[in-house]
Design a protein around this nucleic acid. Structure first.
Lengths: 229, 229
DNA sequence: CGCCGTGTTGAGTAGACTCAACCCCAGTGG
DNA sequence: CCACTGGGGTTGAGTCTACTCAACACGGCG
């Protein structure tokens, strides 16, 4: 469904960088945007999205059982794979029920042409994403799997902190997808979680609900360099 | 040294996306830009760069012997780490003698404010870089080290194809840095190169000069080419 | 009940890592 | 002219760990 007004769009926007765009720009975007809801495991394609809530993953080899999750798009992120070569190897998947604003690529580009503030905001967003990608790549091969897991859990606790006062948090994705994002096999991930609970660093009330018991233990585990034999 | 005129700047620009900016914008950039030359292993910081030639790497843990190379910036790439948190863990290093245009961050941002074409070009550039980063991450954990090496060599041959008619190409970086980029140890890289030469896929006249002897063998080994956005 | 998706556990193996030593070459200085 | 030095690169032996494949546990749902 399209958005009624600039004010409504601003309310829907997940982060200030979007919300604070000029009135004119927001109303143009409102005219072009479509608010879409996706179930888990929905395949997204062909559009530009702004994530409102939920979690979208960029996966490599969607069909294969050997898929790689190359990036996570969180609330507030701009998702634009229009620069990606068109083949069937890349894809966007929702890892949980997700809502997003969808734009036709040409519409959004035209809006960027018109409103330089939009172009600047998109630039800033892309820079942040590039940073996260580099960070992720760095972790992928300076850290051992258990360190990556510890670092990821701390990161997750941080970004889902404001949500509620509860001590724990929900894993926003399946074990399988998480393993593929952290660059390991699901079995390995399972074992690592097991050892973390055994060491008392975390505890899990249900498979997807984790509680950090000892933040310091996790931190000690996360920051270390790669295994020293 | 600053650049004299828009025409000179346009001539220096390495790729059409920059060269085709409007006259006004180019002359503003020429006023702000500084043409700088770096030797190998120079540390860059604090500015925004446009790479003219050479190779810049984003490294994690510059000082450590356990460094990770998280991204490569080639000719035509915009290098802007201003969104990166300021700590001593990230850094930019030249992997070979490199020339680049340097801008003060505030100057460049002001220019983006003024010229929306510049903002759009930067957006496009960042999107391409994001794609490359995702591609790299995907390779890092869907491919085995020898596959990564084969894919990288093919990619390198492709992007340095136009340079000359010679059959081979120069490795643009030290073994050590290459290994760190491909996510393996220097020793492992050395062994992999050895097996590739033993299998007749490549040959090396000097340590840094490689010739692809059998493209098909490499392709078979790479199990999927690396794509160029 | 059987089925399916999801997650966990259990051996066994392949292969990347570690550490140490060595080679090669360019520069340097006696 | 030659020994010395240091950086970059290579080789060798041994260890460790993440992967592989298989089986199993569990819950929801027809």
């Amino acid at each position: 469904m399209p958005i009624a007004s600039a004010a409504l769009l601003a309310r829907a926007m997940p982060s200030p960088e979007w919300r604070d765009l000029p009135e004119m720009c927001l109303s143009d975007l409102a005219r072009l945007a479509e608010l879409r809801s996706f179930t888990q495991d929905a395949e997204l394609n062909g559009s530009i999205f702004i994530v409102l809530d939920g979690l979208i993953g960029s996966v490599r080899g969607v069909l294969s059982d050997r898929r790689a999750v190359t990036a996570l798009f969180l609330r507030g992120d701009l998702v634009d794979l229009s620069a990606t070569p068109k083949d069937d190897r890349d894809g966007l998947l929702t890892f949980r029920p997700t809502r997003a604003l969808a734009f036709a690529t040409s519409d959004f580009n035209a809006a960027m042409q018109q409103h330089k503030e939009l172009a600047l905001t998109v630039c800033a967003n892309l820079k942040r994403q590039s940073f996260n990608l580099r960070e992720h790549a760095a972790e992928l091969f300076t850290k051992a799997p258990d360190q990556r897991l510890a670092a990821f859990l701390l990161w997750l606790a941080q970004i889902s902190a404001g949500d509620q006062a509860q001590p724990g948090f929900e894993l926003p994705m399946r074990r399988y997808d998480l393993a593929r994002y952290l660059g390991m096999q699901p079995e390995t991930l399972s074992r690592k979680i097991k050892t973390l609970t055994a060491e008392g660093a975390i505890s899990q009330s249900s498979p997807s609900h984790l509680v950090i018991e000892s933040r310091s233990a996790l931190e000690a585990m996360a920051s270390g360099l790669r295994r020293v034999a």
